[in-house]
Design a protein around this nucleic acid. Structure first.
Lengths: 352, 352
DNA sequence: GTTAGCACTCTCGGCTGTCGAGTGCTAATC
DNA sequence: GATTAGCACTCGACAGCCGAGAGTGCTAAC
């Protein structure tokens, strides 16, 4: 049996209907509401075929049909490429991203917020691995007589910092001198390369061992090799908008997952670096995500560095809207973080 | 009718029982389990009196009694002063706070996490107003040819930063010179005083107007006058541990509140600066908090600056445990943030 | 003042019957 | 051969009912 034109249209209609109503779709509904030009009985025959083909499920014999995950898969595969966000929303989003970026976490927070508000689903945004970022500037700032803050500015204007111990004999001027020296050596290199360079530095000028080792340890932290990267979640309570999560234990399981940043970043990391990925229901591989779809997309910071942005919603999510919003925000994020100058709004007053 | 010794003991027993079981307490339970030495019938008479006095409610005629908010109020008032956390937990908590503090947000995050894990309730921690913090050091770090990061280190080792525009003619050395000058002028002053000082600076040396104005605008932001201050929430999913929130709509309302940082900080701000405050049910003034107790305590950063730490749980919360944990963590937080040196763990290697 | 005894009330779970929605099948029709 | 009308059938949702169990309030006795 093949999936001919009409079967496909019927399947599409069923999915469209189910996405908004969340109740099993009856043959009569399709026949009337979607103007198929055939009677319910015919639709029923087709539906029966579709069920046999694995595209439809039937909760019980006297209920309508609901799309199976296989159906959603077909549906989104068909959809791919047709994602376009209306101009008005695009404009509004662009404005929203015209803010000052400081720590990458802030930008990521804005993105998560926007994404969940626009889609009404829960959004998850993960900061990228930072090995590929290039250092532009490094500076030590005295925080007490024996500690200093290392501030690293990367080529995309992103700032990272960390407190380290310093020897008491080093005053502010000495730290500045060290900063200049380090900036000279390290600028243009990626965070990933720093370790090697510092090692060499230690070999060549043994006097500075401690400086180098300090920075090196710091780098490890900043790269966050195996550490859980920062994950921002927004719109958690949105899951209650969907009857799928009227069941308290289900809701609890999902919310617990959203709170567990480790598992969540594991989940997102497993998507690899494909431009985008959609996992429907069991494809996610987690029991608490069995009636969820998680869609993710990557964004770029500079060259080669990727972060992940995603949405979590019921399998019957409004794929078209959700995905186009997500992809657009991902683009915006990439653009904003890859401009070598952090943009400042026009008319900004705080100029020195 | 007065609340004599025995009535009080009975009330206490009812509350203790209800706190753990969450089911209405029967006269027989009290008589047997709490060893009152009188028969259920006597207890019933007393309970009847207690109900008349407003300390007990009865869901329906053939159910046991549940404590009213008035009862909880009496109970916690009686409890005040007897909060003590066992040594083992204290030790564990102290260890947990022996980490590197950088941004105040990080410390606050740790505190929130610890509080929710230990109590099994939801925790909320708000960063303090920062007007009262004293500047120790200020440094400008070049982030691009036309922008710089202002890093401010306060007397408690807390770091704040912000990006500002700078004139293209200023190179790294020039920025360092400006930093030194500003540090000299501003160190020892509170963030709140900066504005005045900068104004004077502008008057005296008109050449530097832009510098000063830039920093001043920044200060406004950092103080966050009326801006919502940072609020960290942890253990959201804990609310599902309590049958009070088996109702999805209730859970949704509360979780939405927890997500709305503006309302949440408003709620916490309204507590004033008392050492601690406990609001039971309707005392919170929000419909979604009607079966919740919210307990808050203040913590200090340096002198005069206070932040708020709090827990949200069902009205029948385990007050003794919850409050002693909260108060202890508040203390730890104060201590850690008020030590003028940010502590570093022993054996730390990253020393320059 | 305390308590035993008992009638009374109310909730909860299980069971039943009805209603309505929707299907599957068959036979007639195009 | 595809489509459709008609009808029997199935199943879930819902309301109503019943009995069991929990717990009280009251009364009368101690």
């Amino acid at each position: 049996m093949k999936l001919d034109e009409r079967k496909f249209r019927i399947l599409q209609a069923i999915i469209d209907d189910y996405i908004v109503t969340a109740i099993p779709v009856a043959s009569r509904t399709i026949s009337k509401k979607y103007d198929m030009g055939v009677s319910p009985a015919t639709i029923r025959n087709e539906m029966s075929d579709l069920e046999e083909l694995g595209y439809l499920d039937q909760p019980h014999v006297s209920a309508g049909r609901i799309p199976s995950n296989k159906a959603y898969r077909l549906y989104v595969d068909e959809l791919v490429g047709s994602f376009h966000l209306d101009e008005a929303t695009q404009r509004r989003l662009r404005d929203r991203f015209m803010v000052r970026a400081r720590q990458i976490e802030d930008v990521v927070g804005t993105a998560a917020q926007a994404l969940s508000e626009l889609t009404n689903y829960t959004s998850v945004v993960m900061t990228p691995k930072q090995q590929q970022m290039r250092i532009r500037n490094l500076q030590l700032v005295q925080t007490s007589s024996s500690s200093a803050l290392v501030v690293i500015v990367t080529d995309s204007g992103i700032v990272r910092d960390c407190v380290i111990h310093v020897h008491e004999s080093l005053d502010s001027d000495a730290l500045y001198a060290i900063s200049k020296m380090l900036t000279e050596r390290l600028s243009g290199h990626t965070l990933g390369e720093v370790e090697g360079i510092l090692e060499e530095l230690i070999k060549r000028s043994p006097g500075n061992e401690n400086v180098a080792r300090g920075i090196s340890t710091l780098m490890d932290q900043l790269q966050g090799g195996d550490l859980p990267r920062t994950v921002r979640v927004a719109g958690t309570s949105n899951i209650f908008n969907y009857p799928e999560y009227n069941d308290v234990t289900k809701a609890k399981a999902l919310i617990s997952l959203l709170e567990d940043k480790e598992r969540l970043s594991e989940l997102m990391r497993s998507r690899g670096t494909m431009e985008f990925s959609i996992r429907i229901g069991a494809e996610n591989g987690l029991p608490e995500m069995n009636d969820c779809t998680m869609a993710t997309a990557t964004y770029r910071v500079g060259q080669g560095t990727v972060g992940t942005i995603g949405i979590i919603g019921p399998t019957r999510m409004n794929y078209k809207k959700a995905l186009s919003t997500m992809l657009f925000i991902g683009q915006q994020l990439s653009e904003m973080l890859s401009r070598s100058n952090v943009p400042l709004p026009d008319g900004s007053e705080d100029t020195i």
